[in-house]
């Protein structure tokens, strides 16, 4: 259960469109214990700057290889530093952190899991979708992005037997429109929905999923990442939850967006 502070070595890196990068990290203690939906808190910067760590969802969990994967989007100094590090670079990481997704496929032989993601929000869903598919569940992913290059990790998921439907806002690939429009068509039949993306998208997903179990992976600015500083609050009915400790995965009905 408990997280560790350990070293993670960049074992591979691949550039993806729009400044994204997929990092493979050799970190056996993390890979052995990580569950889908958990995250790593990574020190970015060799000389102590930026000061705070950056949280990244686990986009891949490969216990046999002792590896995990992170999907990094360059948005600021920390992520730019991380994305520029070479293979072999040693990182200081805390993890695995957070609660992770529920995994009913461990008990129920059959089910129909539907992932709904916007852009880089696909990252935390990947390990959950792959694990569910491996146990024989029917697994689909609805992925939306600004344009065709923004549809990340699609080929990899399709290669693993995930039924991926895509849409783009500019119509350059898949259907033109929003991912929630796809959801309206695909929702009947789904027994469980996992979603990650911008708050506007999640609000619509919540409205549409009143009759089915639905979980969100949320994002918030964090300092400690372990529940000590109480910085990553998200409003719930009875006060605040912490995204790092109580989440990042929440029942859709449990949090306000």
């Amino acid at each position: 259960m408990t997280w560790q502070q350990c070293q993670a070595v960049i074992s591979r890196r691949s550039e993806l469109p729009h400044g994204h990068i997929l990092l493979g990290l050799k970190a056996p203690p993390v890979a052995a214990r990580a569950r889908p939906g958990q995250f790593l808190h990574v020190r970015c910067g060799g000389d102590g700057w930026p000061l705070l760590r950056r949280p990244f969802s686990l986009a891949g969990i490969l216990p046999a290889e002792g590896e995990v994967e992170l999907l990094v989007r360059r948005v600021g100094k920390g992520t730019a530093w991380l994305a520029s590090q070479p293979v072999g670079q040693v990182l200081d990481v805390l993890g695995p952190l957070g609660n992770g997704f529920p995994r009913p496929w461990q008990k129920q032989k059959q089910g129909d899991l539907l992932g709904v993601a916007g852009g880089v929000g696909v990252a935390p869903l990947v390990p959950a979708l792959l694990e569910a598919a491996r146990t024989g569940w029917d697994v689909g992913l609805l992925l939306g992005a600004q344009d065709a290059p923004g549809l990340l990790l699609v080929e990899r998921l399709r290669a693993s037997g995930i039924d991926v439907s895509t849409c783009t806002e500019d119509g350059s690939y898949g259907r033109q429109g929003l991912v929630t429009e796809l959801l309206a068509e695909r929702l009947p039949g789904a027994s469980l929905v996992f979603a990650c993306g911008p708050p506007g998208m999640l609000r619509v997903v919540r409205e549409m999923t009143t009759a089915v179990e639905c979980y969100f992976s949320l994002e918030e600015r964090m300092a400690c990442g372990v529940g000590a500083c109480l910085g990553c609050a998200c409003q719930s009915g009875d006060g605040y939850h912490l995204v790092c400790r109580d989440g990042p995965v929440f029942s859709a009905r449990e949090v306000q967006l």
Binding site: L51, L52, E220, R221, M222, A223, G231, Q235, G239, Y240
Partner: peptide, 12 residues
Amino acid sequence: PWAGNPAPRVVE
């Protein structure tokens, strides 16, 4: 108990 402030609560 005190509930604390609304998010965002931290910024670097």
